[in-house]
Amino acid sequence: MGAGASTMKRMILTSSSGVGLTYADRADMVVPLIFRFVSGPLPTSHHLDNYLKGGSFRGEPDVRWSDLVVQSPQTGRAHRELGLVWFCETCGVELIELWFDPSPNNQLQLVWILDYLRAEPYMVERLRLRLVDFDLLGADVAGLRERTVRALDVTERDFEVARMAWEAYRAPTPELCLGLLSRDFPRLPFLKPAMEELLAELPSPITGLGATEARLLELIARGHNRTRELFQPGGLLETRVYDQWELGPLLEGLASGPMPAVAGLDPKLATLAPHDARGRNAAFRRSRLLLTEFGKAVLAGREDFRSHNPIRRWWGGTLLTNERLWRWDGQSRSLVAP
Rank of each mutant, 00 (worst) to 15 (best):
L52K: 06
K53H: 02
K53M: 09
F57R: 12
F57T: 04
R58G: 02
G59P: 09
E60R: 13
E60M: 10
D62V: 10
R64T: 13
R64P: 01
S66L: 08
L68W: 13
V69G: 08
Q71C: 02
Q71H: 03
Q71S: 12
S72V: 12
S72A: 15
Q74L: 15
Q74F: 14
Q74P: 05
T75L: 01
T75F: 10
R77I: 07
R77K: 05
A78G: 08
A78C: 03
A78S: 12
A78F: 00
R80Q: 11
R80S: 04
E81I: 07
E81C: 05
L82Y: 07
L82C: 01
G83M: 07
G83S: 06
G83A: 02
G83Y: 05
V85L: 13
V85S: 11
F87Q: 09
E89Q: 15
T90I: 07
C91W: 15
V93W: 14
L95V: 15
L95G: 09
I96W: 13
I96S: 08
L98N: 10
L98P: 10
L98D: 08
W99V: 01
W99L: 00
F100G: 06
D101H: 04
P102S: 00
P104C: 00
P104L: 02
N105P: 02
N105Q: 05
N106L: 01
N106Q: 10
Q107M: 06
Q107W: 06
Q107A: 02
Q107N: 04
Q107P: 03
L108K: 08
L108P: 06
L108E: 05
L108Q: 03
Q109T: 12
V111C: 03
V111R: 03
I113Q: 05
L114G: 09
L114F: 05
L114A: 11
D115P: 00
D115S: 15
R118Y: 03
R118C: 06
R118D: 00
R118I: 02
A119I: 06
A119T: 14
E120R: 11
P121Q: 09
P121A: 08
P121K: 06
Y122I: 09
M123K: 01
M123N: 01
E125M: 08
E125N: 12
L129Y: 14
L129H: 14
R130D: 01
D133G: 08
F134D: 00
L137C: 00
G138Q: 03
G138T: 07
A139L: 07
A139W: 00
D140G: 10
V141C: 10
A142C: 02
A142N: 13
